[in-house]
Amino acid sequence: MDAAQATARDSYVLLQVGNRRFALRADIVSELAPAVRLHNFPHATPLVVGVIVRRGRIVPVYDVAPVLLGRGSSVHRFYLIARRQFGNATEASAIPVTGECELASGEAHPPEMGRQRYIAGTLPVGSEDVDVLDLDVLLTSAPVSPSREIHRTSNASATEAQS
């Protein structure tokens, strides 16, 4: 791995979903798009809420809030477009985000034991530890029930209180 590749691996895009911040590896993020028209039609794929048209391509939109927050995200102002891996191929995938994204760099730590499979690590950003998402795992995850989310949130609050 050369220096440029190493830098790319250590760069993350911080995104806001609902009231929480998460991180995605910057090398899989293509762009932050405005909230263009969402087209929907009947389908049976969990998390997919429709498609948007971006630069002549049809891009599926995934509402990840039910997985990350345990509830749908009603407000979003942008779509973060990232590449999802399908074998050797990649496909643009859009995630509705509520705020503007920012770039951060640093060394992510491995996730704590027992964290969800879609958490690839933890990135220290200032005084905050931001969960780094594994996009491919996240987009095939089942939404969490509200009771599990309450449990997870109260754990997070307890950790914050201890620190």
């Binding site: 389908h43 049976a44 969990p46 049809i58 599926p60 995934y62």
Partner: peptide, 17 residues
């Protein structure tokens, strides 16, 4: 798009814009 993985893969030939 490959992200669609349910029964819709049998329902549709694809999408038209």
């Amino acid at each position: 798009p490959r992200g669609f993985s349910g029964a819709e893969r049998h329902w549709y030939r694809g999408l038209a814009y």
